[in-house]
């Protein structure tokens, strides 16, 4: 596969009735995580009746600690508004990060399409 010069990070929003989906591509890191936080904040502010916020991570290439902090920040925002936060199609590295950091249970890890939830070893942590 030829490595095309991809933009470092993009967020694309799609709205449906009562649900919003953000499609993330590229590297979610120290420099780009602010963009995701803003996009999620806009989704939450745009629709007061929003019930589900989906983060489609299928095209995510990297997620560093600031990326994780941003996911936690979005989770804090959705929890306060009673919105369910779904992390969809997490690539193996993301599943691993969420697993090691013990926060996987916070995100309704949804399989999007054919991809199933990774071989997640649940440590029995209950949603907080």
């Amino acid at each position: 596969m030829t490595a095309l010069p991809l933009p470092p990070f993009t967020v694309t929003a799609e709205d449906g009735p009562g649900t919003a989906r953000l499609r993330l591509t590229g590297d979610l890191d120290y420099d780009t995580s602010g963009e995701l936080a803003r996009a999620a904040e806009e989704c939450l502010a745009a629709d007061p009746r929003l019930a589900d916020l989906h983060l489609d991570c299928a095209q995510l290439r990297l997620c560093d600690s600031m990326g994780v902090a941003t996911l936690l920040l979005i989770h804090r925002g959705t929890t306060a508004r009673g919105v369910r936060l779904h992390v969809e199609s997490p690539p193996p590295f993301l599943t691993r990060i969420l697993d090691v950091t013990g926060i996987g249970h916070l995100f309704a890890l949804g399989a999007h399409g054919q991809e199933s939830a990774q071989d997640r070893t649940d440590d029995g942590a209950t949603p907080g």
Partner: peptide, 15 residues
């Protein structure tokens, strides 16, 4: 050993 990261969530667990 497993546990939750610290500083971001109201409740954490650790084994």
């Amino acid at each position: 050993t497993r546990g939750t990261l610290v500083g971001a969530l109201p409740q954490i667990e650790a084994r």
